[in-house]
Design a protein around this nucleic acid. Structure first.
Lengths: 159, 159
DNA sequence: CAATATTACATAGAGAGGCTATGCAAAGCA
DNA sequence: TGCTTTGCATAGCCTCTCTATGTAATATTG
């Protein structure tokens, strides 16, 4: 059958495997199919307010060109706008438009809707454990962000 | 600087946000940079043994052409091979080569290595909560897989 | 058994999403 | 002033994913 009960290896692996598969599943089944990266970026801009490209790149752990391209896609949809940074003529400040906030809300609703039936089916104890799990994850994430300030190690594997 | 302590919305959203960011972070910082999708596919083939393309697609919740392309990439690296299915001349059975298993092990090790320092820094209580969290996630995943109506188990024909 | 339908996979085409390398203009600094 | 750094855009190159469609083998049915 499918991929139930994968074998345990070690916590790091298990964690990443679980998150990868959950992500994959959610993005595959979301009804309002806003690409994951765009949802992430919308959410980030929403959180951070008018923000520079480079700040977004850092917060997203991605490269500056990736964010530039992402913002261009958001702009093309009318979801984001940019103003010059009054304090630095090189920089621009990206922020959400009203439509962008609407789209973000819709995407959140849709993604939640995919998972909602599953979550609703959990009993109270499981619900509590899930909340706990999310909290732990966020802690791990925060520490991870802090723990790896400038790890750019990059060996290209020979093809 | 970064994006600590994002606001809570609802469990489904929080869950997906946490998993998305964790994934992103891990893939960004993994030293042995096997693309996520290839790692997923290697792992899947390893789990399922000699497997048809269509079975892999179903297990991965992705389309058949996606798997076809993925397997081709794995083959090009010498990580997977294919044999004709003796019971059906249309089908092929994909399996890992020895090099494929080695690559999978390396990728797992590398991904675990990125997270390991963070996990090691957790105290015993947090570790326990994390293990719990992973378990809950896997349960959610299993239920999610089952809850999706349109991806039914395929007929497994007997010899 | 021949005609038709279904299944398994490949290919084509398109677009998102990611990277590095590089160019350019503004800002910072010597 | 002139050199360096910074902020962003562009270019070029992959991977990953989809839908649509083609082809060959298998299954079904009249």
């Amino acid at each position: 059958m499918s991929n139930q009960t994968p074998r345990r290896t070690d916590p790091a692996n298990d964690l990443l495997r679980a998150t990868t598969r959950l992500n994959r599943w959610a993005s595959r089944h979301a009804s309002f199919d806003l690409p994951v990266a765009q949802a992430r970026l919308l959410s980030l801009i929403d959180d951070l307010g008018p923000t520079r490209i480079s700040t977004l790149a850092e917060a997203d752990h991605s490269s500056q060109p990736t964010i530039t391209a992402g913002v261009q896609r958001l702009e093309a949809q009318g979801w984001a706008g940019r103003e010059p940074d009054p304090t630095d003529a090189r920089a621009t400040l990206v922020s959400l438009t009203k439509e962008g906030r609407i789209a973000l809300a819709a995407a959140r609703k849709a993604r939640a809707a995919v998972l909602a039936p599953v979550i609703d089916a959990l009993d109270a104890g499981e619900r509590a454990r899930l909340d706990e799990a999310i909290t732990v994850f966020e802690e791990v994430l925060d520490r991870a962000s802090l723990a790896v300030p400038n790890l750019q190690a990059q060996h290209r594997k020979e093809a």
